[in-house]
Each structure stands twice: as structure tokens, then as C-alpha cells.
Design a binder for these strands. Structure first.
Lengths: 376, 376
DNA sequence: CGCGATGCTGCAAACCTTTGCAGCCGAAGT
DNA sequence: ACTTCGGCTGCAAAGGTTTGCAGCATCGCG
């Protein structure tokens, strides 16, 4: 039913190759002919079949974006940035969600492999070795994880964690908890490592709780454990968990930040909407999306993996060029952190009280401390 | 570089057609042969090229999902539901975001057309006629809009709006504002229509503000206008706008719900996290996603639009079977609505006061009123 | 007038699969 | 012993496009 290139050729009295060129190499065809072809194409509602084209050129002009959890507000800015960057280069982005499931991740890479020119693997939960293996099937750029030999873009959560911990230590906190993220998360490991050294260096004591699902309910479920741990400050794997934790503490009668200081990571927009507004480590998600698309497109425009185009030669050599980019993070201080309680512990028996002054806190400019930046 | 069916055939000493059948019709090939072929395929890391397969079968086992704004928390549950439903039927979902841009919408449909078996068009902003035209290019299911002759799944926002307005009128509100949504939104028109008749029937007066971008900033930008309108209650096009409006009113010194009652639409999870918790019309987004996938798959499994499979006959006749489903909505009463102020107007000069009792409101079961349900 | 260059178009192979048809072989039925 | 049948496999066309190569005029130049 849909018009093919042949229909157009017949209608305009030229060979199919001329029709093809009209679309893919207009300068090679006589303007007059081209006009006639275009008219017929328009008339018949012809659109090139991208699948057929991909079959021979080896390039689909699509890129796949695999996301751990689309419901996490952390991702949409990244997705949008990737899409707009891709659109500028005449590419389309197909997003797929894995529900934090490593199996689904692998399956999706396979499914996408032949339908896209490359895949952006965002916050993968699978093993490094599997990622490496999959990268032989389709060009991969990894986001939020470092895998040796593959192009990666990560956030410098290590620096962000240090900044957060120093902020808390400066405020007099000594007993600090870390709510870690999901099993398999590179970011979570980085945070944990950095938190460990930073707290120790500051003479504090770190309690690690987890692994946990990186969601709001994952956070609220930890309120009881946080109370029992007797800490005065908490760093959460992400904002969602931090917000959930605040909810949970609230239900337990513990006030934030008077009794417990809470800091999140990501700086999702939601973190500015809750009460108290969340102190958090801002990660440049949009930049990550853009960068990842750039790396992917540069990486495979260099060596077109075309069907005919004479397969790329160096399988090992071009690893030299695979970049690993790490993006700067920033600590944004808002209303969920305060000086440690005088007795050095949160009060175990908080009475019910009208909400504290943070409710009235003005919209003043948030304090900002910068983290590090690295690239290689 | 990637292994093709021919490589496997050579390696296992059979014809390519046997390899093909090993995967697509296993019962037609001798178990012994099949075993050998599978072994070789595994060995070589062979994966069928879905693009090539699609070229001949006419079915890609992909479905496209076009979304107005992926950053709107309304959509993720719909996306996830669609994905899981599709996965059960061995389909993959590709999500694309249009940034509320009608042009991008059209372009995406074209881009997806040949790479998917059908497209779910969610909250489209383009014209009905264009949608109808595009539906001749690829099977379409429309979500959040009714288009004659096309399968649609919508939410009964009309009933939800009526319930919300009755709730407000019962609470003594008479001057009510409606924050309408983006231009081109079917839902927004439905809400406006229903709001008009409901408020008039209740002896109230409706002020319509809009159209507006359906975002948090879109809502907060309207605070000033809402104040000037002198209304005591507001229904917003969606929760995001409602939450933004509450922020904006707060900045103006107007308290919700004491001075102004606010109700949203959608019941996104965020609406339970803000203070005050939002009264809102819950829409069954997950059900919508599932239903839409079902309608699409049923619709085109009936008549395979295969290349060879003898094109479908009835172009008009099968319209009889195109269903239009409308899903039930529910009014969820939380803390952002209250009785109208005694003087019938919000106080124009609110003093700064410690936050009201809604801060302490327990997690009690929300009151629920049911809306209608329709199907044809 | 001849020659090469230039601009445009047609030809046909190739991309990777699926699938209708035909062929082969052994077994079962008559 | 001859047919029939069934199970399995091979053959080749088809699907829609791109692209290197070759052919053909036309044109400019010497």
C-alpha cells in the first residue's frame, strides 16, 4: 500500500536510481528531473523506507538510549538533552526503560543493536564484562559508569560526596549515615568510597545502609534504621531517596534539619519543591546527555560500519581514541541541612511541634560549592 | 563484522533457509540439524537482523510511543505500563519526546513509520486532520484525544472536572478559576467545557485563564492573575500547574487552602509529596498505556500488513471495529481544598503566618468520589 | 573537426532475511 | 513392487533501497 521508490520512478518516467539520488544526493540530478520526481513523490506520499536504506548503508540514523528507570526525574533532562543534540545531527533517539533490571538491559541492547547506529547505556546495572561483550555487537557509550576501553561519561560524584561530607562535618556532624543505591551501581560504589575517606578524614563515623532501591519508598523505608543508627546527618544515594527519607523521618517525629540533616544527590527539580528544600549535589545531567551523543556520533562517523564501506580496520587501535569524560558536580546548600544538635545526637523522643522556620525560609540564592573536573 | 545467516549456514553445512527456519519455525527442522545450527549460531554470536527480517515480513515487533513531554511525571507510569504490556507480547517500545511541538510530532511519526508496527500517539498537539492523514501511513492509536474513525483511549476528564467542581461548590466556592492547558490539547478543551456547565449549574462564576504551558512554571506564572481575578478556588489543567500555582500564591502571601483552594488533575506521585498535599482528579495512566498497546496489537494482528501477505482488503469496513475507550477518573480529596473563606473572597492582604494545620494533617485515607465510564 | 571533460542517467549487484515451491528419501499402505 | 505420504531440506524470488560503473549527450576548447 505505501508508495515505494519504484512507484515514484514509474510515475515520473525515470529509473529508480534517479529517484534514490533525488533524495540522498540531490546535487547529482538535473534540477528539472529532480523537480518532477519530487512532485510525483509528494503526490504519491512517498517516504523512503529507512529500514531498507539501513540494510544497505549500514546506518539507521537512530540512536538507542537505555535508561534504568524513566520514572526517576533524574533522567528526563538527560533524555531531552540527548534528543535535541541528536536531532541537530539528524538523528532520532529511541528511549527504552529497563526497570532497573540487568536482564532487560541485555535484552534491549540486543533488540536495538541492528536498528540503531549506537546505544547510550545509562546507569547500567549489569556487569562490566557483559557490557564489554555487548560493545562488540554495537557501538556503546556508557553513562554513569566507567568501563575500561569504552567511551564513558560520568559525573564526579566523588568530589560531590566530599563536598557534601565536608559541609556536614563543618556543621558539627560526626555520626553520619550513607544510604547507598542499588546493587550494581557504579555511582553508588564511588559515593561510598569517597564518603568513607572524607568522613574518616574529618574525624567522623560513617554508617552505611544498603543497598537500596533508589526510589522515594526506598528512602522512606530507611527512616527507622536511620533513627536507630543515632546519626545526625544522612547522605542519600539520590534526591528521591532523600525526599523519601525526610517523609519517613517526619512520620517518626524527627524533624529535618533540626534533628537530622539530609543531603541528596542529583538536584532534580523536585528537590526545590519539597519542604524543606533539599540540600543536594547537583549533577549536570543535560550536559551528560549531550556529551554522550557527541561521543557516539563522532566515534562512528570516523569509521562507518557500513555494509560495503570496507569494514573498519583497527579493532584495538582505535581504543586509543575512546575518551572518558567526567563532569563537574556542585554542592547546592538549601534548607535540609543545619548545624548538628547540641548534644551531638538527634533527640530520640521528639515531641510534635509546629513546623520549624524552614517553612518560612526565603527564596534566597542557594550557596554553592564547586566540585572537581576531570577528563582524559 | 557481525555474523550473518550465511556464516551460520556455512559453518553448520546447511542452507541458509534451514538456518532461518531454525529460528522462525523450529518445528520444521530436524532436531538434530537444529541443534547443530544453534550451536554454530551461538558460537558465532549470530543474531537475526531485525531490519532485514522486517523488510520481508513487514513486521518489526516494535511499537513507537510518542510523548508530549517526558519530563512531565504524568507520563512515566503510562510508558512503563505500555512497555510491560508490550514485552509480554514480545514487542519492544521505543519512546520519543516531542517537547510539546506539533512539528516534531509529525516528523517523528514519519521517522518511526517504517520501523515500527504501530504508533501510540500520546496527547498529540497537532490537528485532527493531520492525525487522520498520518494514520494512513502507519497504524495509530491515539491517547488522550478523540479522533473520529481512529482507535482512541481517553480519560474521562469531563466527569472528573464535574466532580471537582461539585466538590468546590459544596464547599461554598462561587468564584472559580480554570487554568487551561496548552493550545491543541483535547483534554484541555474537554475540561473547559465540563467546567463551564458544572460551575454554571452550581450558580458559580468561572474565569478561564490560558492557554498555558502545562508545567510548574506555567502554573506559578499565573499566581498574580489568579489573585487579581479574586477567585477562591482554582482548577488547574494538571498537577504540575497546580503545584506551581501553589508556589506562586505562597510567594504572594496567599495561603492554600485557607485563602484559595486548588485542585489539580492527574494525581502524579508528586502531588502526595508537596505541602499541602494536592486534591486532584486521578487519571488511570497505567491502564491507558496497557489498553493502548492492546488496541494496537489486536488491531494489526487481525490484518497483517505484511509485504507479501496479501494486503488487507477493507479500508473503510474495518473502521467499524475501531474502539474508543474512555477510562474512569476519580476525585481524590487531600489538603489543598477547604471551605471558602467566610467573606466569599480570598483576603487580599494576607499577613505572614506560621503555616496552617494542613502541615500536620495525618496520612488518613483520602476521600474518593468516582467519575464515569464509557466505552463504545 | 576531434578530443576530453562534464553532467546526467540507467544498469545491476548487494544488503539479510523469509517463504512458496519443489525435490529428496524413507516408510507405510495397497 | 508401486504409490503415497510425510518429514526435512534446498532453491530462488522478493522486499526497498544505495551505489560503483558504464553509457550517453552536450559542451568547450584547441
Amino acid at each position: 500500500m505505501p508508495a515505494t521508490i519504484r512507484d515514484v520512478a514509474r510515475a515520473s518516467g525515470v529509473h529508480i536510481s534517479t529517484v534514490s539520488r533525488t533524495f540522498s544526493a540531490p546535487h547529482l540530478v538535473n534540477p528539472e528531473t529532480r523537480g518532477r520526481v519530487l512532485a510525483c513523490a509528494e503526490e504519491l506520499g512517498y517516504r523512503p523506507n529507512r529500514a531498507a536504506r539501513a540494510l544497505i548503508t549500514g546506518r539507521t540514523h537512530n540512536i538507542g538510549l537505555i535508561i534504568a528507570d524513566i520514572a526517576n526525574p533524574f533522567f528526563p533532562p538527560l533524555i531531552k538533552a540527548a534528543e535535541s543534540q541528536a536531532r541537530q545531527r539528524d538523528y532520532h533517539v529511541f528511549v527504552a526503560d529497563t526497570n532497573e533490571d540487568p536482564i532487560a538491559e541485555e535484552e534491549l541492547v540486543h533488540a536495538l543493536a541492528k536498528q540503531v547506529d549506537g546505544v547510550l547505556l545509562c546507569s547500567p546495572r549489569m556487569s562490566n564484562s557483559l557490557i564489554e561483550q555487548l560493545s562488540r555487537e554495537v557501538p556503546l557509550v556508557v553513562i554513569n559508569r566507567q568501563v575500561a576501553g569504552l567511551p564513558c561519561v560520568t559525573m564526579d560524584v566523588g568530589q560531590g560526596t566530599r563536598a557534601a561530607m565536608e559541609h556536614l562535618l563543618d556543621a558539627g556532624h560526626r555520626r553520619i549515615a550513607l544510604l547507598s543505591g542499588p546493587r550494581g551501581s557504579w555511582t553508588s560504589r564511588e559515593i561510598r568510597r569517597a564518603a568513607g575517606v572524607a568522613v574518616r578524614a574529618g574525624g567522623g563515623e560513617l554508617t552505611v545502609l544498603g543497598p537500596n532501591p533508589p526510589t522515594e519508598t526506598g528512602g522512606s523505608a530507611l527512616a527507622e534504621q536511620v533513627r536507630r543508627a543515632g546519626v545526625t546527618a544522612v547522605l542519600a544515594y539520590n534526591d528521591l531517596m532523600a525526599i523519601g527519607l525526610i517523609e519517613g523521618l517526619d512520620a517518626l517525629g524527627l524533624r529535618v534539619p533540626q534533628d537530622v540533616s539530609v543531603v541528596g544527590i542529583d538536584d532534580i527539580t523536585l528537590s526545590r519543591l519539597t519542604r524543606p528544600k533539599l540540600t543536594t549535589v547537583a549533577t549536570p545531567t543535560a550536559a551528560a546527555g549531550r556529551t554522550a551523543v557527541d561521543m557516539l556520533l563522532q566515534h562512528d562517523s570516523v569509521a562507518t560500519r557500513g555494509a560495503r564501506g570496507g569494514g573498519r580496520s583497527g579493532t584495538i587501535d582505535d581504543r586509543r581514541t575512546t575518551a572518558q569524560v567526567m563532569l563537574r558536580t556542585e554542592l547546592v546548600i538549601r534548607d535540609s541541612t543545619a548545624a548538628a544538635p547540641a548534644d551531638g545526637r538527634h533527640r530520640p523522643d521528639a515531641e510534635v511541634v509546629a513546623p520549624g522556620p524552614h517553612r518560612l525560609a526565603g527564596p534566597g540564592r542557594p550557596t554553592v560549592a564547586t566540585g572537581g573536573v576531570v577528563a582524559s
